[in-house]
Structures are given as structure tokens and as C-alpha cells.
Design a protein around this nucleic acid. Structure first.
Length: 122
RNA sequence: UCAGAUGGCCGGAUGGCUGCUCCGCUUUGGCGGGGAGGAAAGUCCGGGCUCCACGGAAACACGGUGCCAGGUAACACCUGGCGGGGGCGACCCUAGGGAAAGUGCCACAGAAAGCAAACCGCUCUGACUUUGGUCGGAGUAAGGGUGAAAGGGUGCGGUAAGAGCGCACCGCGUCUCCGGUAACGGCGGCGGCACGGUAAACCCCACCGGGAGCAAGACCAAAUAGGGGCGGCAUUUAAGCGGUUUCCGGCGCGCCGCCCGGGUAGGUCGCGCGAGGCGGCUGGCGACAGCCGUCCCAGAUGAAUAGUCAUCUCCCGUUUUUAAAGACGGGAACAGAACCCGGCUUAUAGGCCGUCUGGCUUU
RNA sequence: GCCGCCGUAGCUCAGUGGCAGAGCGCGCCCUUGGUAAGGGCGAGGCCGAGUGUUCAACUCACUCCGGCGGCA
């Protein structure tokens, strides 16, 4: 699973589809075609955003770690190959029970999968 | 036992499953080991380190510091002491040089706010007088009133009334002596009040300070633009060279010769052995220093040090119970390294250890 | 990482040691047949928080809190 690190990628994902749950927000967009000379990237790519509104440094780090742990558990199963994801932490990510956080992520990924397939069909 | 004062320490523990980062080994499957803080924070000071032709000296400017002695690499920090203030006390607070170098300010009130003066008064006295007083002269600052502050304070004597006019004590100034390294303290003599406050107002004095900051800086290297580096000659002909001026020295300009680089958040280094931690001994009241032994202890860069479960520890609530104790539920602070170190300041649930003071009770 | 600026009435801002002010807004009254404009009167502030200097602090000093901006 590759990590998104560039500002350019985050700006592109911000224009894509978005699903909001109590525990987190997921953005998704299909990967743009890249030059053939580049090395073929991994199937799944994901980035994380936790803003200063969430809390201080300790709380932001903890939110990010919980998001990393949950995506590592679910994304290989529910994520679509060739689609980039950005997971945004919220204030509730800090205190939401872990099982509910997993449910939030699973639901968001499934919903975005439907949306993605419908748009590609249309 | 109650109420306080003060110094120091800890900052949940263990295990299972699944993971992260760095290092080492590797049969490339993995295995082993290290992995946040006392403040990592604020960026308020002091340094190391790196670069900038500010390399050296002096003066001015600017900024900072400001009782004394010591500690330290250094400091605005720390230790010990002194003076002042607070507290019954343990103890706490203290930007604490100079107001006789000069300038400014002291609103309102008040007669008067810095130089001494006199509003209501007080005393003596002259004139007039309707016998109540009115107007003047001289002396005075005790009393009244204003103010944050009124030119020493209290008491006695003294006087027409008063006044350091005289005396005693206190305070102030000054001189000698004594103790102390010093700040300062003490005894005594003299003066007789002349010298108000404010320097976190300008200022004066003493001391300190070049600037920027690891995104410093070095190296490897796409694209793109055209210069750049080294050496020699010449030594002022120009702007200028990190606040200004002066002096000394140098750079920068030009010519010749040789060489090829430049650097965009791409990568590598800088980047973890240090004014280091722990233990002991010695010196010192102490801060601290010296010696010996021992240990190697985070190095990320969309940024690791975790996710989750269980048990235990502590706290709170409900409930069963005479109680002990149990069951259920909830909670366990402030907060995350980003070049490093010494301080300061600020945030911090709960707990532990020591020393001391005052009160009460008992012996 | 380093540096600077600003917090004063509901809003935008003055004030530079002794009074807390201006404009807009708000309330009441006048004016008008009515409204706007205009005029008059008035309310509204522990000057971001704390400590200190001073007789006296929005002002001076220090420490925090919050906001905004700049540099590489």
C-alpha cells in the first residue's frame, strides 16, 4: 500500500467523490494515466489529512495512527485497484470505538465503490 | 492531632495478537536489539557548531545588565551573604548603582509643590473707634485646612507667642576607630537640618554585545538560463564591503593564463561520544569541582516510538453487607524529539519521601 | 527555525502618565400626513489576563493568553 505525500495529489483528490461518516471522511478519485517510463506503482494508494482543528500534536498523531491502522485492516479487501483514497480525521476519530471506526470506513468504501462504478458506467 | 512552611522524587505495571521506525546479522523466509519529556512547549536569555571579507584597533551610536562574594564554557541562571519589606514563627518577596553633573514632571486640591514662602491663625504693638471691632507695623510657624508628599519625629525645657532656640532618645549627614575579602554592620565624637519624590522619565557611571541561523552549510545530480572558479600582474580609476567615523590590512574593477561548472523542497551528509548518564571517594556551609569505576542511551522528514484485548494498581459513582470485602459502570494529568547543550518561564491528575514552624491534648 | 505587529463601546478606530473618546450602530424626543435625511438627549467599557514601578497606569516594565503578518 503506497502513501500519498504530494500536495498535488491531495488537491486532485479534493475534487473527487467524498463520503462523510461520524468517525471519518473518505475522498476517492481514479488515478490519472501516467508516463510509461515511470515504474508501475502499487495497486492501492492512500493519504491522510488531520488538520489543526482536531486538536494538539498528541491528539493529531493519535488520530492519524488510528486511521492508518483501520485502513491497513480494510483497504486491501474493500478498496478498488487504480483508485486513490484520502482519509480525513475528525474530532470524533479520537474517541470513537474502534469497531465503529472500522464500520465507518467499510461503509464509506462500499458507498464510494458504488458511486465510482456508476460514474464509470455512465 | 490540627494548621502551615520548605526541599526532592515518580509520572501507571505486566502479558498476548497485529503493526511502525532505526541499527546489526542473514540461508532474503526472517531473527535479535534500541525507540520521547520533565517540561520535548513558549522562544525570554547564555553557549557550541556553520556561513557571511566585520580580519584587527579606537571612538560614537544602539541594545542589554546593575548590592557583595563565589560557582560556571557562559548567562538576565545558581549558591552563600548584606540591605529593605511582610509573617507569632518555620519562611517568603525584593530591576537593590547614581537625585550634591544637568534637564523634565509632580494633575486636582491647597496660601505655597521646590525656592522657600505665609491663607485662616498666634503674640507684642501703633492709630482710629459707635467699646463690638477696623486698618497698619514687627515677630512666628506650634495649631487648622489641602494633598501621595508641606523643609526632620516624639517628649521636656524655654518664650510675649513661638521656633533645633536648648536638652534626651530616634532618624539624617559627616569624621575617626573596630569587625568583615566585600556589600555592610557596630562603638564613639561632631553638625543642628542645610539635602522632598520620580532614573520600569531623559540621563550619568561601570561592565557586556559583529550579523545571520541546521530551511545554517557541504556534496551528488534532471530540465532551463548564460556565466563561474583558480593563479599571476596592476594597487585606486567607480558604486560598494551587514549602524556611523577614523587608522592599518584586505575584497571588489581591469588585463593575461589555466580550468569547467551553475543548483530547482530530488537525493546523501551535517546527525548523534556529549560542558553525557549512573555509582563511589575527596574538598567545600553550598552552588560546584577533582579523581576512580562503569554504561553507550531515539534519529523520523506527509515525519516512527503504535492499534487492540486481558489482568493488576489508583480514584469516583451506584449497589449488597453490621463491617471487612465483593459486583457493575466510568475515569487515570500536562503533553510528542526535528542540530545540540546550560538556564528561565508557562502547563501538569494523582502519589511518595525528608526537614522545619505554630497551636491543642497527653505523659 | 527566526522575526514583527495588534487586542479600547455591538462594529471600525483615536487616545502616550492624572478626563476614557470619535464615527457608524442602538433607545427616546423633535421635525413630517408618514418614512428617510436632519436636530436634541441618553445608555452602553473592571482598555485581552496577571504581577510590578509610581502618589497615580489604557499609557511604563516583565510574564502569560489570543489573533494577524513576514523571511528563508
Amino acid at each position: 500500500m503506497e502513501r500519498l505525500k504530494n500536495r498535488r495529489d491531495f488537491l486532485r483528490l479534493a475534487k473527487g467523490r467524498k463520503w462523510i461518516t461520524p468517525g471519518l471522511i473518505v475522498q476517492a478519485a481514479p488515478r490519472p494515466p501516467i508516463g510509461a517510463d515511470r515504474a508501475p506503482p502499487r495497486c492501492l494508494r492512500v493519504g491522510f489529512t488531520v488538520t489543526k482543528k482536531v486538536g494538539n500534536a498528541v491528539e493529531r498523531n493519535r488520530v492519524r495512527r488510528r486511521l492508518i491502522a483501520s485502513t491497513r485492516a480494510l483497504l486491501p479487501q474493500y478498496g478498488k485497484c487504480g483508485v486513490d483514497y484520502v482519509v480525513i480525521g475528525r474530532r470524533a476519530t479520537l474517541t470513537r470505538p474502534y469497531e465503529r471506526l472500522l464500520d465507518d470506513l467499510k461503509g464509506a468504501l462500499i458507498k464510494l465503490g458504488h458511486v465510482q462504478s456508476r460514474t464509470t458506467k455512465a
